[in-house]
Every structure is written in C-alpha cells, then in structure tokens.
Design a protein around this nucleic acid. Structure first.
Lengths: 141, 141
DNA sequence: CCGCATCCTAGGCGATACTG
DNA sequence: CAGTATCGCCTAGGATGCGG
C-alpha cells in the first residue's frame, strides 16, 4: 500500500479510522449529520426542558428559530429519526384526536449535554470566526 | 407573547436562544452544519497530522473513507469554507504547475479537538444506538 | 497540479391537502 | 391533533473538460 499517499503520518491516520468511522451507516457520521441539520439541536434544546406535545413543540421551535416554522411533516421526520436512534421517546394516548407526547431519554439528555459543549465552544470563538471571514472576504476581491 | 406555547419553561428557553443562535448566518449553526457534512471532519482529522497538498490530501481522504474519492471540486469547496472561517490556511508556491499546501490554524486545531470529543462520545454510545435502532425497526413492522 | 465552469442527480425541507 | 402523501424548490456533491 505504498504507491499513493504514503507518509509516516498514514499509520497514525489508519489508527484513527476506527474512531472516525468508515461506513456510511456509522453512528458517528450519522449522528454528526443529524446535529448539523436544520432542527435537531434545537429540538434537543426544547425537549431538555421536559416532555412536549407535537403541535406545541412545533410552535415553540418556530418561535426560537425566529424564522418560519418547520412543517408538520419535517418535525415528524426529525422526531422519528431521534426516536429511532434512542434519543427521544414517544407516547400516544387517545385516538381521535390523538395526543402524542415526546421527551428525551437518558441517552438523549447526554447527547444534548455533549452537543452543547461543542456549540458553546463555537460560540465562544465566534468573534474569531467572524473576523476570519471579514479578512477572507477582503482578500478575495 | 402568551398565546401560543406559553409555559413556565419558555423563559428558560428564551435564555438559551442566545446561546443556540437564531439567525441563519450564526457561526454555531453554520459550523455545526459544516461538521455534519460528508467530508469536513475527515479533512480536519487528516490535516491534524500536518500540512498536505491538494492531490495527496484527496487520495488520503478517499482511502480513509473507504468509499469513492470526493471530487476535486468538492475538496476545493470544503477547504475554501474551512479557510474562510479561519480553521485552515492555504499556501501557494510555484505557478505552472501550481503547488498548494493546506494546514490547520491554531483555531482549526482546537475545533478538531472539540469535535473529536463529541465524536468519541458518540462512538462510545454506538452499541446503545445500534440497539435502539434494532428495537425500533422490530416495532415498526 | 490545481482551480474553475458546466452539467446532472439525490436528498433535505417547505407547502398543501387529506385521513382517523 | 397527529401523521401521511404529493408536490416542487433548492443545495450538496459527483463527473467531466479546459486553462494557467
């Protein structure tokens, strides 16, 4: 395996591969993708305060995002993914009209805590990031 | 503001809004989106070992991802975004053929460290996540 | 070798309408 | 109220060819 990008560093990288995950269905890649999407981190943020019903959760998310609301369909999709991975639980009571409640599992609470650590770090660096952008844009004319 | 989803918890949420970021151009949301994409975390991983040239970096990324290589175009796009936000530097020497080298800035090194913390946590929980998926899929027939 | 322009496809996500 | 189906937009990102 020494024809392409052989380097002393390649050995270290191969050791890291396991950590990072290679496949497309790897939890690490998928969960990172989840946290990077439009709504999931915000959903975790709201559910961290306790259980919410679908419609109420949707209104609150719209309020917090200060943009337009997410569609009913998308909220269902996001919650379904979160539930599938074990971060969110779902409880149904009543039939018509249905009454569905969502909340964080212990695993979901932990995920929220971990994600918040990273988000807080990014926010702490946002002045530096904004400055870098300004410099970059100035150099690009 | 008391008609929609008013709750005791809404006050706590509004306090968090600032942390989480409201706008579309907020660094927190954008960087999380970056880390959630197909290649950026892997690029950080490789560049953490030292500076790399474009083509060599591309080959290595392809190797590590165990899938097909990312296109030249996409690598350039990703590196440009990373550079724009101050995580990556870019140095050109030579004209034809050009010789371009990329590496992590101190800020980029820190980002990699922070992101790794979250990725490591996810990996530590991947058995639980896989198990949740299995249970979920079984309940969905 | 590297970057750019062009073209194309898959998927994320919003809007709307309909069922139980 | 909650979920699903259908639609259509828009962006991420892959393939290819050109030019410096």
């Amino acid at each position: 395996m020494e024809s392409g990008g052989s380097r002393p560093t390649i050995a270290a990288l191969e050791a890291e591969m396991v950590v990072h995950g290679k496949g497309r269905d790897d939890p690490a890649r998928e969960v990172m993708g989840l946290l990077g999407d439009r709504w999931s981190t915000l959903i975790l943020l709201v559910l961290a305060t306790g259980p919410w019903r679908h419609a109420e959760l949707r209104r609150t998310l719209a309020m917090l995002s200060a943009e337009q609301a997410l569609s009913q369909r998308v909220l269902t999709l996001k919650l379904r993914t979160l539930e599938r991975d074990g971060f969110v639980w779902r409880r149904v009571s009543g039939d018509v009209p249905p009454k569905v409640t969502y909340g964080l599992t212990p695993l979901g609470t932990d995920l929220h805590t971990e994600a918040r650590r990273l988000i807080d770090w990014i926010n702490s660096r946002s002045p530096a990031i904004r400055e870098a952008r300004a410099v970059f844009d100035r150099g690009q004319d």
